[in-house]
Design a protein around this nucleic acid. Structure first.
Lengths: 137, 137
DNA sequence: ATCGCGAGCGTTATACTATAACAAAACAAG
DNA sequence: CTTGTTTTGTTATAGTATAACGCTCGCGAT
């Protein structure tokens, strides 16, 4: 048993690899693939996909990053307050990913979860389309 | 210009490859990867991933199949009446995929789409968790 | 101190998913 | 028949993700 983390669930500080990967995610408004990220963090000493994937896994577990299934990519979390569901609007033209905190979108899911005999572990909600800027409006 | 399809948008009949792939999807309650399907339709003469992906692309365009992003897999459509959004409940234990036609789940998305300056092209809504059977209830 | 253990990291190799590019065949129109 | 178009077949390759193994480092026990 480790002797640190004395109070019980103090979140361990991010390691070098996690910091580098999270930094790369935060610098981008679009989702990045693990290999994109790898290209960007080679300077920081990461050399293989495994290292990037391990860092991403930890970041996602902590809620500091999200996986975008429909892009096979990742984004930094911009709404740390949301502990449960997260939703994303993805522009198919410019690639920008907006994290949606809209409770109107999420509440129905919670409601459905309560009514159905289905034990929800995770929800993926990804809306693809044109953002206002790209729609030319 | 083709002379067939005389009335304008008569849906061309499915080709051999599409039929074989759709058959494989319909036989399964879980999502199948393109390579899974390929193994199953080798008898029908398909030999390369490209053929399976092309068949899947056509089936999805017609609404006869759906892609499950979070599994990199595909399922046959079981609710042909729904033209717009489709949602899925995916059991993480047995892999069964249930297509959700629940309007209560989908209506909020339509509502959001109307209110937001975002031109929706496609919505991915995938709920992962334990189905009633696997939850032991 | 030093031994042994467990956690995490680095590295290599490989599996899995998807598409590009071109060849061959099918088919309608002239 | 021949020509242009569309579909299908085939090969090769790109892109995404994980398995497996060995090293090192920190810690507690002796």
């Amino acid at each position: 048993m480790p002797t640190l983390t004395p109070t019980g669930d103090e979140p361990a500080p991010l390691g070098r690899n996690e910091q580098a990967v999270l930094g790369a995610l935060r610098r981008s408004r679009a989702a990045r693939s693990a290999y994109d990220i790898l290209d960007e963090v080679r300077d920081a000493g990461l050399k293989a996909p495994t290292q990037v994937y391990r860092a991403l896994e930890k970041l996602v577990k902590r809620g500091l990053a999200h996986r975008i299934e429909s892009l096979n990519g990742f984004v930094a979390c911009r709404h740390p307050q949301d502990q449960g569901f997260a939703a994303f609007a993805i522009c198919t033209r410019c690639g920008a990913v907006r994290e949606l905190a809209d409770e109107a979108l999420i509440a129905p899911l919670r409601h459905w979860a309560g009514a159905e005999p289905f034990a929800i572990e995770h929800v993926t909600l990804e809306v693809r389309g044109l953002c206002p800027a790209c729609a030319g409006g």
